[in-house]
Design a protein around this nucleic acid. Sequence first.
DNA 1: GTGAAAGCGCTAACAG
DNA 2: CTGTTAGCGCTTTCAC
Lengths: 367, 367
Amino acid sequence: MSIPREERGPTIIDVANLAQVSVSTVSRVVRKHADVKDATRARVQAAIDSLGYQPSPIARALVAGRSRLLALLVSDIANPFYPQLARSVEQEAKRGDYTVVICNTDDRAGETRRYLERLLLQGLDGVIHASVSSDEAVVHELLPDRRRVVFTNRPPTDPQASYVVSDNGGGAEELTRYLLSIGHRRIGFIGGPNFATNAVARVDGFRRVMAEAGEPEPLVAEGDFSAEHGGKAALVWSDSPHPPTALIAVNDSVALGALEALIDRGLDVPGDVALAGFDGVQLAASPLVNLTTVDQHIDRMGRRAVRILLRQLGRQARPPAAEVLPTQLLVRGSTDPTLRPPLQGLVRRRDAVPSHGGQQGRGERAT
Amino acid sequence: MSIPREERGPTIIDVANLAQVSVSTVSRVVRKHADVKDATRARVQAAIDSLGYQPSPIARALVAGRSRLLALLVSDIANPFYPQLARSVEQEAKRGDYTVVICNTDDRAGETRRYLERLLLQGLDGVIHASVSSDEAVVHELLPDRRRVVFTNRPPTDPQASYVVSDNGGGAEELTRYLLSIGHRRIGFIGGPNFATNAVARVDGFRRVMAEAGEPEPLVAEGDFSAEHGGKAALVWSDSPHPPTALIAVNDSVALGALEALIDRGLDVPGDVALAGFDGVQLAASPLVNLTTVDQHIDRMGRRAVRILLRQLGRQARPPAAEVLPTQLLVRGSTDPTLRPPLQGLVRRRDAVPSHGGQQGRGERAT
DNA sequence: GTGAAAGCGCTAACAG
DNA sequence: CTGTTAGCGCTTTCAC
């Protein structure tokens, strides 16, 4: 099971022998620590170069209990928000010479625990927590040192925990005001699960503005962040006797689900019902979708989170960081009829009748 | 920098002391190795339980040179194909008690090298190679032991390397035959980069069938797997004097780009031009897209790849595995007018004129 | 400035 | 069956 000596590459001892110094001197040179005479340093460096020596992170981790490994906890890698976040986290981590492990929690605290226990034993240094599950207690239990975790995407409960999140409430407020300003009164909000504080903040923003506008009991549906649920909720409302004229989805993924369902039903967006999302994923900008949304500046959030984490991983004690990034409303065709609506332009000269039912699945045929 | 003793949790020595045995006995119990008297085993187990002892993977890795870490090399996490693959790889790895690190290579051999060097030092056990870059040499250089790598998504060049890929050529053939069967003669293929052997296999399948059908010089464009390029290629052809009546994109992501561009241009899919992709990502099934595609059974491919890798990581020598999984043609509205076309049903009662130009960007307004 | 020596927590011979 | 003894490759006192 163990790897033969030759395959392991040169060790610090090899370098020491070649350079005619002790291992501690080599170690000093490698870590650019303490004082080493220039001549010695040069000799050691030459030996390092000629051997192509690279220190073993495992041995280092064993001694230090650290590994230059970060974990990124996400709810669902299939939601395009998370890959986008992952990219930016990874890039920033790379700059600090850290490696990122992406952990898909499916919003289950058990998964969070499984990953963290495993990676901690592996020497995990820190965590970017971007999933929304009710696992904050687990995280604090496993990483009692608050400096080793940065929450993002959703604000944590613990006041000692660092975080960088978007202004979810403010973004939702701006979006809601915009919808009111273009004449909508009856607006439905397809929300997320109650344990997701970012989702709650968005609903709250919506509720505040609606209350101000004299609609104290606006339509709100709880949800689970799934596109499927988004579709169902949209249809339930549009089938109701007095359907809303506009829908806000708690995120773009849910909005996509709603859009698909509405179109499937033969409804016109935004003609029959306006639709908006939250996040600003790239797909929302596609002409196929053209979704009005609240842009979270995902990349920036990821980079900030990593920078904060790496700073906190340093020696000096630091107060917990708490950053709220501004959002930006992006108005597109799914709410504004003067802009291109989702998919418009397509069916122009089609006259074939859509084949509802009869076909297998949703109009698909396997061969 | 190093973690104080108390924070590190109980060690094997603590257990040995408590159970009044030697560390080797504890080690044996932990690894369920060799023979230990039942009474002793019970005593040791009791000590382990009461202390909540867990062996340190770092120390194990240091001794064994192994870490129960796998790397998954992907081209671009933003292409939905890869998150889907990542999920299945991760799930299967979890069952074998391995952790997966997702590495985004952007199809640059330099990135592959960077990740592998780092992770190998970390004790990386094996690699699932799903990116398509021309980095095979790098992989073999860094992991000369062929058993530690399984290629997927694209077949490797080295005959000793294991792989599990889809029948890319066969899938493309079936798709092409289908398009011919519904009356298309002039078909364009929006390909990938030449270094991507899976892309090449798909073009080749297309070429074979076209040649059989008496079209020895079919339209083929090289590409880079980007949606942007897919859009450009589609437009160049549709602007040509004698445009193709059908387009095949090398993957669904590129097809999406083409679809967006075509719709943007006001063309009808499939009326003006039929469009098909390859991969079978979930988004292709969305009613917004309804893309005919060749399903690769992504989940199955990921699971197989992991299973093969874990088997090879075992003791016994094994011949390299070579699996070619069948694909499945999924006919949807983007090629078959009797099925629901992409986005149909939407614009039914719209009469507003699409706002080409004049608006900022692609019909978007930031506030 | 530099070296010697003691571990980090575990596994793997080799003895008994 | 069980214990003893070396390390794995590095960092870190503590001397010189």
